[in-house]
């Protein structure tokens, strides 16, 4: 769920961009370090970004009968880590804004914060906690992918509520309104993306587990 171009007031665009900047700076620093240590990873990360972009063009059937698209944030975070995925997510959002008119340049900071940062860090936290407490891999993957989608949707609703507080209910009332309006599409989408992520990982495990693990060592943990 991306906030469209020009929808947020200028002060909020600047504020959310400033909030996203430290995370992106950290991500770029880690990205630079990784590329210095392992120059071959450059092309792999480019491929991951291209994959995340193309995922957004896949239609995902939703239980309400509508269609939406997966974000790939949960999937990418498990394999690449949250810092790098936040930068990859930001680049994907940039291309979505320019080549698909999805999201926007002025709202790039806000969308980065909700999807690339809140989404990937929440997915990472859920994945780590799930593995630490010994949940089955597929359950943890489902939770990481679907709850990170829900985190994105909640942060976006909060961003909209802060920009447009309700005349009667204030920010809390506006947050309930936006959460309610977008829940129709976003909650089924989160469940669908969780199922999709598990199915994709199962297919990769059964058909190309060794090949993927050879390129992405993190896949070994998912493949157990």
């Amino acid at each position: 769920m991306h906030i469209m171009e020009g929808y947020l007031p200028a002060a909020h665009c600047i504020g959310w961009s400033a909030a996203a900047l430290p995370f992106l700076a950290l991500g770029v620093k880690r990205l630079s370090a990784r590329l210095r240590d392992d120059p071959e990873a450059r092309l792999l990360l480019g491929a991951a970004g291209g994959f995340a972009f193309v995922l957004s063009a896949l239609k995902l059937p939703s239980v309400t009968g509508s269609c939406s698209h997966p974000t790939g944030i949960g999937f990418g975070t498990v394999l690449f880590g949250p810092s790098i995925m936040s930068v990859v997510g930001c680049v994907v959002l940039l291309f979505q804004a320019l080549l698909l008119a999805h999201g926007g340049l002025t709202t790039l900071g806000a969308n980065c914060f909700s999807m690339a940062i809140a989404g990937s860090f929440s997915a990472w936290a859920i994945w780590r906690v799930g593995r630490a407490v010994g949940l089955p891999v597929n359950v943890t993957l489902f939770l990481a992918a679907s709850l990170s989608d829900l985190a994105t949707y909640c942060v976006t609703s909060l961003q909209l509520a802060l920009a447009f507080p309700d005349p009667v209910g204030g920010v809390a009332g506006a947050a309930v309104k936006f959460l309610g309006v977008f829940a129709i599409t976003q909650v089924p989408l989160a469940i669908s993306e969780g199922l999709l992520t598990v199915l994709v990982m199962n297919l990769l495990r059964s058909h190309a587990g060794e090949a993927v693990a050879g390129v992405l060592p993190a896949f070994r943990e998912v493949g157990r």
Binding site: L45, G46, A47, G49, F51, V92, L94, F95
Partner: peptide, 12 residues
């Protein structure tokens, strides 16, 4: 970052 943007663009 610019390298990543260019590589993503080439892959798209």
């Amino acid at each position: 970052l610019l390298d990543l943007i260019m590589l993503v663009y080439r892959m798209l």
